[in-house]
Design a protein around this nucleic acid. Structure first.
Ligand SMILES: [Mn+2]
Ligand SMILES: [Mn+2]
Ligand SMILES: [Mn+2]
Ligand SMILES: [Mn+2]
Lengths: 218, 218
DNA sequence: GCCATTTTTTAGACTTGTCTAAAATTATTT
DNA sequence: AAATAATTTTAGACAAGTCTAAAAAATGGC
């Protein structure tokens, strides 16, 4: 059974390696994990030993099927716990990450199955990210950014790209939550800033903000 | 902030040291923690360094006020999580301990406060043990064993002394749960075994069993 | 009060996960 | 195609938590 540290590394490699095999490099993992490259190398050797990753010296690393299964199971737990915190314990979406980061490592199959039942089989976490199923399958949704929406079109918030605390707080402050209806009124050609209509009030946002919000066209 | 290992030691010392100060000896801790005495000595030195215990070489150990606060907070978390698992996630009382043993170490004040609210401020866990309040105060209940009840008297199950898995399963099998009504019909003088009436059916139990069940006289 | 037994501590070793500094390898310039 | 720069790995160290084996202290019997 993988240790907490191993699980965190697997998750980091999973998130970094959306492309193909042998694509994730040591420095990228070190940056994501807030450790040094030398620590990453040590861990990669251990994970390779356990056949959770394919690792070739100097070439990069990727998850094996077993590693992928393990990683997506941790992500499943992380997102189910985030959902629990928001749905049942009055957490807001910018408060859940650190706690879920701990809860995802609790070892109990029954616990996570029953949590899933208790939450009525949610498909997405509070940030709009899909919750992998028991087999590790993740629902692939083609994500559109708010920045890609043309003036006059109405859409609703389907998630965020970067769920950094201060970004989520910005959204809260401006009454944008998961599912909130957004209409693009004007797209300024000069800086690509947008004027939106949200709940009968208008809001101007920068290109950077619009590039961090996923939407679904109504 | 104490590590997971430190928290487990503090809890063990707390449970062993119901008497007075300097009463808990190294071997007792080692036995409870399933470690060797030498490991305990090492840890006691570290905990003493952090002023969580008073420790005198060869004399024994006890918790400081700060240590007591920390320990009872972990026990509070343990018992709240056990309650959650039984109340909300369909765990039975013999399945909760190992999971709560992990969950008790999650660091988040908001989490435990909200869990308390969500469960509607429970006072006892699924085994009948009192849940310490935020300040660490534990409701002291004078515990009576079923073995102390005289024939003809009616009482209800208020908890168990040893919540070992196979003991709890024995109780489940015989339809004894927290709150179950129990009437003592006969107390056999020879071996102190009891004949009970539970839900209109009779059950004979040994002295050992009766010594593990706490009851409240109706 | 002394000897034997038990309890407790020390000494030294090991694993996991981390670090710094130096060496090796790969990538990029010119 | 070298030389330089960047990335990655190795070497050696450290803290936490554990162990075994040996030494030290306390306890109990007589
Ligand atoms: Mn984590
Ligand atoms: Mn999330
Ligand atoms: Mn524990
Ligand atoms: Mn309990």
């Amino acid at each position: 059974m993988p240790s907490q540290a191993e699980e965190n590394y697997l998750k980091a490699i999973y998130h970094l390696g959306k492309q193909g095999c042998l694509s994730v490099n040591t420095n990228a993992v070190a940056k994501k994990m807030n450790t040094k490259a030398s620590s990453v190398t040590d861990m990669l050797k251990k994970l390779a030993e356990k056949e959770l990753v394919n690792y070739i010296k100097y070439q990069g690393v990727c998850l094996t099927d077993e590693g992928k299964r393990t990683a997506s199971n941790i992500i499943r737990k992380h997102r189910l716990w985030e959902s629990f915190l928001v749905e049942k314990l009055n957490f807001s979406w910018n408060e859940v990450h650190d706690v879920a980061e701990q809860l995802e490592h609790i070892k109990s199959q029954k616990l996570i199955n029953e949590l899933d039942v208790f939450l009525n089989f949610p498909t997405h976490d509070p940030h709009g990210d899909p919750i992998p199923d028991k087999e590790g399958n993740v629902q692939k949704s083609q994500k559109i950014f708010l920045s890609q929406i043309n003036p006059g079109v109405s859409c609703s918030c389907a998630g965020v790209k970067d769920s950094a605390d201060n970004f989520l707080q910005y959204l809260d402050k401006n009454n944008i939550a998961l599912g909130t209806n957004i209409q693009v009124i004007v797209k300024e050609p000069f800086d690509e800033s947008l004027i939106l209509k949200i709940n009968h009030s208008t809001l101007t946002i920068s290109k950077e903000i619009a590039n961090n919000i996923y939407v679904k066209i109504n």
